[in-house]
């Protein structure tokens, strides 16, 4: 591929999430034209009074913008973690939830909904249990020397099923009038309640996670050679795996605790990245982030505008992502698999 074509491809990939965020400020129940949106953003950033009706200002600046930004962050985090785990586990069918972070977060959220029923408590509990689940998976694999990959997968399976069972128990015990629907809706994933404060709170672990994965991304190539070869190539496999797992888990837990369970992004977006730019994690890891960010904002836009009421995100990611993935597989003939 020529350098010029590559340059435009990367420019487009990086610009896509920003353009899509801007676009998503225009659409919804109250359509706003682009001039007004630009005006509002300009006024708010420069702290000047705005001659736009208050309702539009609120819709664009307080509702749509934080939601789109959070959506991009969540999508990017799920996708980048999925890409990292696919490399680490040497398996293209792995997603961000392989070590149980989603199951743990789901249970944590359900528990908080029953006990506290408060947004902040739900975030904290989902985040904590998501991290705990991965920690358990990791400790299970530690039974063997040096956390072999297969034991990590097994640990993740065990922990996921235990937390799924605990989640079922929580649902069973929940008040069916208020709590149970709240749990079910949380599990379907949504960005509807996004505020700037969410971006800041959940943004910290997401930033640390994404930053760490960006820094260690070349090592993921080496780790994907398998433990023994990675060791003989000269890297400390346990240490490097722990960093990748830690960063991916922080990013995913940060995302899941504010958005609920959103499947599919962490599996498919890295694949689309592989088809577009190849498998070298030096390029794939950042590309996965931007693709995931763009994808989730688009899906969230569809969720807002398709019907009178909102469609939960977790449902739409699969319905939109599935056929799109099949189309891409057919078009690129699988990209060398």
């Amino acid at each position: 591929m020529s350098l010029i074509k590559k340059f435009w491809q990367y420019t487009l990939l990086i610009a896509a999430p920003f353009l899509i965020i801007l676009l998503s400020l225009l659409i919804g129940r109250y359509p706003v034209d682009i001039g007004t949106v630009v005006n509002i953003i300009f006024c708010r950033i420069t702290m000047q009074p705005c001659n736009v009706e208050d309702i539009y200002q609120t819709v664009v600046w307080d509702i749509r913008l934080p939601r789109a930004i959070l959506g991009a962050m969540v999508g990017g985090c799920l996708s980048i973690s999925g890409a990292a785990f696919q490399g680490l586990f040497r398996n293209p069918l792995v997603s961000a939830g392989i070590l149980g972070v989603s199951s743990g977060a789901g249970f944590g959220a359900a528990l908080a909904i029953i006990i506290f029923d408060q947004a902040a408590a739900i975030y904290a509990s989902a985040f904590t249990f998501g991290i705990l689940a991965v920690l358990f998976s990791y400790l299970i694999s530690k039974v063997y020397n040096g956390t072999p990959t297969i034991m990590l997968v097994l640990g993740g399976t065990i922990v996921s099923s235990v937390f799924s069972a605990l989640l079922s128990l929580a649902k069973y015990l929940a008040d069916p009038m208020n709590e149970l629907p709240a749990i079910v809706f949380w599990l379907m994933g949504s960005l509807a309640s996004a505020r700037y404060s969410d971006i800041i709170i959940a943004g910290i672990p997401m930033l640390i996670g994404v930053g760490g994965l960006m820094l260690i991304r070349w090592r993921i190539n080496v780790l994907s050679m398998g433990d023994r070869e990675a060791h003989s190539l000269g890297i400390n496999t346990s240490f490097n795996k722990a960093i990748v797992i830690g960063c991916a888990t922080l990013a995913t837990a940060g995302a899941v605790c504010v958005s609920g369970i959103i499947g599919w992004v962490g599996l498919v977006m890295p694949h689309i990245g592989r088809m577009l730019v190849g498998n070298d994690n030096r390029i794939l890891i950042p590309v996965s982030f931007f693709l995931g960010a763009a994808f989730l904002v688009i899906v969230d836009d569809f969720g807002r505008i398709l019907t009178g009421s909102e469609i939960p995100l977790g449902i739409l990611t699969a319905i939109i992502g599935g056929p799109f993935f099949v189309y891409l597989l057919k078009k690129t003939k699988g990209g060398g698999w």
Binding site: L215, L233, I235, D280
Partner: peptide, 22 residues
Amino acid sequence: TFPYLVRDIVIMGRASFIGPFA
């Protein structure tokens, strides 16, 4: 596992000289 390019595979031989975050 993944269809890496040959040069991406060979450069992994340099891992012991490259820091964890480089």
